[in-house]
Nucleic acid binder design. Sequence first.
DNA 1: CTCGGCCCTGAATGCGCTTTCAGTAAGCGC
DNA 2: GCGCTTACTGAAAGCGCATTCAGGGCCGAG
Lengths: 342, 342
Amino acid sequence: MQPRTHVTLEDVARAADVSLATASRALNGMRVTPQLRDRVLAAAEQLAYTPNAHARALAGASHRTVGVICHDVSDPYFAAVAGGVMRIAGNNDLLVMLASTFRDPEREIAYVSMLRAERAPAILLIGSGFEDSRWERALDAELKPYLEGGGRVAVVSRHRSLKVDSVLPENRAGAAAMARALLDLGHRRFAVLAGPPALTTVADRLGGFRDELKKAGVSLDPADIVEGPFTRDGGYGAMTELLTRRSTATCVFALTDVMAIGACAALRDHGLSVPDDISVAGFDDIPIVRDLTPPLTTVALPLQQLGEKAMELALTENTGRRRRILRMGGEVVVRASTAKLT
Amino acid sequence: MQPRTHVTLEDVARAADVSLATASRALNGMRVTPQLRDRVLAAAEQLAYTPNAHARALAGASHRTVGVICHDVSDPYFAAVAGGVMRIAGNNDLLVMLASTFRDPEREIAYVSMLRAERAPAILLIGSGFEDSRWERALDAELKPYLEGGGRVAVVSRHRSLKVDSVLPENRAGAAAMARALLDLGHRRFAVLAGPPALTTVADRLGGFRDELKKAGVSLDPADIVEGPFTRDGGYGAMTELLTRRSTATCVFALTDVMAIGACAALRDHGLSVPDDISVAGFDDIPIVRDLTPPLTTVALPLQQLGEKAMELALTENTGRRRRILRMGGEVVVRASTAKLT
DNA sequence: CTCGGCCCTGAATGCGCTTTCAGTAAGCGC
DNA sequence: GCGCTTACTGAAAGCGCATTCAGGGCCGAG
């Protein structure tokens, strides 16, 4: 801000005719003669004094702004998780710096660096990592000194080689459960709308699904697995590709709800009906899918809780020597987007 | 963060065997003998040095973290606007502190105060204000000294009595256009899912709609106007209430898309079909409504742009003596949730 | 009435950095 | 070879605050 010179503690002290130290103590609720405290408080009020958080942080008072980094706040998945983070942060008088990387690894690292510079007491990383493992290593290199400096890091749905606390969705078990649910409906020919297999989220969900299918003697044709970005348009594109390939799958499993939404849109645009012509299932249970027509069958994740727990992990000391890992969710919610195969 | 003592500039200077001043200059790209600069950079790299943003801000370098306050990041409307804000912020190497107030005025004021303490160069307020005008006054009282101190404030979809730049949706014109569109479809009996009339957003949208109807000789029965919070559940509840009242309206206009989504859910739960039994229209054009079945007729707002423009306003100096006001959007997009009345 | 002890206040220090200010070495013309 | 300008470097000040360390009232005890 243009230092159009702010009201400083010194101004307040002068106005109240006390020393700087007394003013500071009065404002911070330490023992001060009531009469003096009142004078200081009145002066501060009068001058619209706001302490300079930077000076305060520099002088030793702990800084109360935590950092949260996600790919895109406007994605419902991140928005929901961020909502949970903010709830806990708010309850603890913490400000949240929320950054969107727009899936640009360089930007993500830059944000970690800035947060480090801010001396944020904690950094939360939400969402899958990047395909290229070099970026992941670069990120760890940035995180390491931060951790060594006493910073706290927690991640949601993302693996790190460093010792950081994690909140992980039950990706593998959830996908397996979904496989069973779909098999129970009578489906035998499946397609999967996947993402880059380098991501553990993809590997786990796809792996869990495929393995469970295999147990039932059903195999997944590689031609029925289409990759696309984890976005609505990614789902739309992948579904379109699948249609082009004339897949005979009776059921499509999208690895994220957002992709499933895109897939449904593609199907509608091709004049196909869900679930009459083809069943669609997703993963995440973002709030909106309940209100789709038909409502989406999906693997439920307590998104808000994911964020809450991550924030809580970052706020409490990890006294043990191992990283703490919380696994959550994974229940299949069958709704109307999947039909019994007759 | 626990001052487990960080690497400071002094450490770097010592390691590179130069003075503090030289180290600072080298790191900030000022003219320094190449050889010295290299030594400093190498030392910094080696020590994983990260400048302390607080010390830096205190020492006069401008602070690059702007604040954004909205009601709830997990609401698609705010998420989309915030997305736009972040895009511009990212392009300008700005960090964004995004805070969710959860519609709690006290929390909102607390956030402004914290942002003020952070000496954030700009604060963006996104979304409607509060019903109780006392809170609005309290907010203005907090904002005023900030502005006087050189802070920049921009608001989206929210009126302030102070001189702050604004980005406003074309609420009145948009609602009027929607009225015309619905009249053109043959509807004559309308219901409105509204919010607290004290909010200008509500007053403008409802007023624009009602006035346009009146021009066509159609009046709005007060019994057909139901208030509810601007949330999915608010829409659900309001629609349910409307159903209970046995309204004869053929078309429901929800003042926000999120409410419209709730309304559609309520209708579905009551076994009614959209648009066969009743037409539904919304306002905002949040991304998801395109993918609903049926896709929602709504008044389009360029949500991302709203955020982008607001950020741009906050980033550029207002040289004029009047506040800058940008009005955007307001086009009706007719989709399948509204049907021609036969 | 005096002295020790307690509590509260004020002066001074330092957090890590940017930035002036002064100083020194190098470069140039004569 | 001398004086002057130019170009960097280093010492030091200060941003606003929390906090330590002394000092100075006041009390009760002796």
